[in-house]
Every structure is written in structure tokens, then in C-alpha cells.
């Protein structure tokens, strides 16, 4: 579904490659976690997948088509992107923000139709955020904002959903809410989900395909339960990793 071939990327005025020769194949209908420390290149790789950043070397293909040759509308039909920082344009109401999910199906002079608006309300209600439709974005808590952003991605109705650290600013309850929602979406729809996180437990919980990144390279890839071992994690996080499998799923913590 998504093929990354020999991707190299360097920010302007940066001496080193933030992404250094990454080759990756993401399969359809899977849930994938890009895992690694801060500044290892996870977000950059996600933006390259979405075409927001253009690599200096290598190609990104979606269903065999080069992402750079696709228009923004074509990309938005294939992929929705839940950005990490959603603190802008905060005086949008939740309803109006969600309706923007339909932009990829509208011509430049068109407005969302009545049936599209009705669908926004229906999807929001089904998603459990129907009570927020009247509220302004800046009145929402971090957890609510994240749920709204995920719901907007669902309205965009693309096959692939990219999420940049969807749990990073959330408390444990909201982290669980967001992750269980993603798990449910993956199970109930045939969407391909790719998220970035620096928490290995999220990958274990999602039973995801894990891509472990370090210093701009992919150091390992595979099923979370097989891959998240003391050895691989020690390579990333250092020696003071503690690994337990006493719970219903394995858990990683620090000593």
C-alpha cells in the first residue's frame, strides 16, 4: 500500500540527514506504530509519507503512484493526517472544523452540502462527540481535541490515517480512550493506520506492526509482541529498562 524507497531527508541548514536511507513497506488494513525516542525522525517520516515534506532522495508510492506527482486533493482522498499540534484557528466550532473533512470532495467554489453536514452530525454522534458540536476548539480539553481530530480524519474518509503522537499531551485515561478508539477503527473498518509514539506500551496494546526508529534509520520492524523485547528496547532506551509480562499484555517501564 505505502512504499518508501531509500528515503533521505535533510532540513535546510541542517548538517545531518534526519531520515537516513529508509525503506519501508506498509501493508493494507494494518495498524502500524513508528516507535522511537524524541527527535529520531518519526514525525518527519510521517510528513514525508503524506507529501508535506519532499525528500531529497528516494520515492514514496501509494498504491504504486508517486506521492509527489499526486495533487493535494488526490493525497487527501488517500490519506488523512492528524497533526500533533491542533492549537490554531481555535475559534472554529467543532462542527465547522469537522465539516472541513469534506474539502477533498469539493471543488474550489463549492460549499459542503446539506447531506454532508447531516453526515458530519451523524458521524460525530456515533463517535461519541455529538455533545461537542457547538463548542469552540479552544474550549476543548486535550483529550476532546484529539478525539475531534480523529473524527475529522474519519469524515475525510481516506483509506489511510496518519496520526502524529496522538497521545503525547494526554493523561492516562484519555490515552486509553484514544488508543482504544484507534483499535476499534482498525477492527471495524478496513483502514490502514500509522501512528508515531515514543511509548512502547502503546504498540503492545494495539498489537501493531512496529517500526523501531533510531537516529533517522529503521533499526527493526515486525509484530509488536515479537519485536518489543528487552534487547531491542535496551538498544533504544538504555540499560535501565524493566520488562514485565504479568499483566494481560506485556508492559515496559523503567527501574
Amino acid at each position: 500500500m505505502i512504499n518508501l524507497k531509500n528515503i533521505k531527508f535533510k532540513y535546510k541548514n541542517n548538517a545531518y540527514d534526519v531520515i537516513n536511507d529508509v525503506t519501508l513497506n506498509i501493508k493494507k488494513n494494518t495498524i502500524n506504530v513508528l516507535l522511537g525516542l524524541n527527535a529520531c525522525g518519526k514525525t518527519t517520516l510521517l510528513k514525508i509519507m503524506n507529501g508535506l515534506l519532499k525528500p531529497q532522495h528516494g520515492v514514496v508510492e501509494i498504491d504504486g503512484e508517486n506521492i509527489i506527482s499526486m495533487s493535494h486533493v488526490e493525497r487527501a482522498k488517500k490519506m488523512s493526517f492528524v497533526l500533533q499540534r491542533q492549537n490554531i484557528a481555535s475559534d472554529f466550532t467543532v462542527f465547522n472544523y469537522l465539516a472541513i473533512g469534506y474539502t477533498n470532495s469539493l471543488k474550489f467554489y463549492e460549499q459542503p452540502t446539506s447531506s454532508q453536514k447531516e453526515k458530519v452530525v451523524a458521524i460525530a454522534e456515533e463517535f461519541g462527540i455529538g455533545n461537542l458540536l457547538n463548542r469552540l476548539l479552544d474550549e476543548l480539553s486535550g483529550g476532546q481535541l484529539q478525539m475531534v481530530s480523529i473524527c475529522k480524519a474519519l469524515i475525510q474518509d481516506s483509506e489511510i490515517i496518519l496520526l502524529d503522537e496522538p497521545t503525547s499531551a494526554l493523561d492516562m485515561r484519555n490515552q486509553n480512550k484514544v488508543l482504544s478508539t484507534l483499535k476499534r477503527i482498525a477492527e471495524e473498518t478496513n483502514k490502514t493506520i500509522i501512528i508515531t509514539t515514543h511509548n512502547p506500551n502503546h504498540a503492545l496494546y494495539l498489537k501493531a506492526n512496529v517500526v523501531i526508529m533510531n537516529k533517522g534509520k529503521i533499526i527493526n520492524e515486525g509484530n509488536s509482541e515479537k519485536l518489543i523485547t528487552k534487547e531491542t528496547l535496551t538498544e533504544i532506551y538504555g540499560n535501565d529498562i524493566c520488562y514485565s509480562n504479568e499483566l494481560d499484555y506485556n508492559e515496559v517501564s523503567f527501574k
Partner: peptide
Amino acid sequence: LGREDAKASGV
């Protein structure tokens, strides 16, 4: 909405 959000929405 800003550059990244607008691009990701297809604009």
C-alpha cells in the same frame, strides 16, 4: 487552519 492542516485537507 494553517499550512499543514490545509495541505492535509487537500488544499
